[in-house]
Design a protein around this nucleic acid. Structure first.
Length: 196
DNA sequence: CCCTGATTCGC
DNA sequence: GCGAATCAGG
């Protein structure tokens, strides 16, 4: 007997691309949703890899018709306007609430671009000047000299090495790197961009 | 680090 | 055919 009970094992629905699902997949893919978004839309048992894999098998990788009717050279980038930005964006965002959201399928990141922004005097008033203190303050008693570093201390240098007030972060470092969480993130975000 | 799609390859 | 693992890029 064919004992393929792979399905219906633990109430999980391992996909099994039905016409319905494939249809939805096609639709969403064409609409420009990302693979992970589509995966989330199709169900918990579907990963973005599954989606991408299917997409390729269906041979519908290309999903945007830029209307390349003119293989001409790039028309000089149009300079619409340069809304001058003041000093800093003053990002006062951080407190990420602990909202339970396993996989928040985004609403619709579709439309973006031309967004008329008009600031009322009130809004402008609320724009504080950027703190500019993008560095952690380490209490003096926590500061470490070069010789005090060990495997578990953050080795992020702070200050001018030539001056007296030079020290190392010294916070407990992550297993994944030589820095504490704060500095690890800071380092990566810089380097990874330009790497290679 | 987050994310994206592309490709490979054992199942 | 399927999709996790990997790769390559932003």
């Amino acid at each position: 007997m064919k004992d393929s009970v792979l399905t219906m094992v633990s109430g999980a629905q391992p996909a099994g691309w039905t016409d319905e699902r494939v249809d939805l997949l096609k639709k969403l893919w064409m609409e420009g949703l990302s693979a992970s978004q589509i995966a989330g839309e199709l169900g918990e048992g579907v990963t973005r890899n599954a989606v991408i894999g299917k997409v390729h098998r269906l041979k519908l990788s290309a999903r945007a018709k830029p209307t390349n009717t003119t293989p001409r050279a790039r028309p000089a980038a149009p300079r619409p306007a340069a809304p001058r930005r003041v000093a800093g964006p003053a990002p006062s965002m951080s407190a990420s609430a602990s909202i339970n959201k396993p996989r928040p399928s985004m609403p619709r990141p579709q439309v973006m671009g031309a967004t008329a922004l008009a600031m009322t005097p009130d809004m402008q008033a609320e724009l504080y000047v950027a703190p500019a203190t993008s560095e952690l303050f380490i209490p003096e008693d926590k500061r470490l000299s070069l010789l005090q570093l060990n495997e578990h201390t953050c080795k992020w240098p702070i200050g001018d090495p030539l001056t007296k007030d030079f020290y190392f972060c010294g916070q407990h470092s992550l297993e994944s790197g030589p820095y504490c969480e704060f500095h690890s993130r800071k380092a990566y975000h810089q380097l990874d961009k330009k790497r290679r």
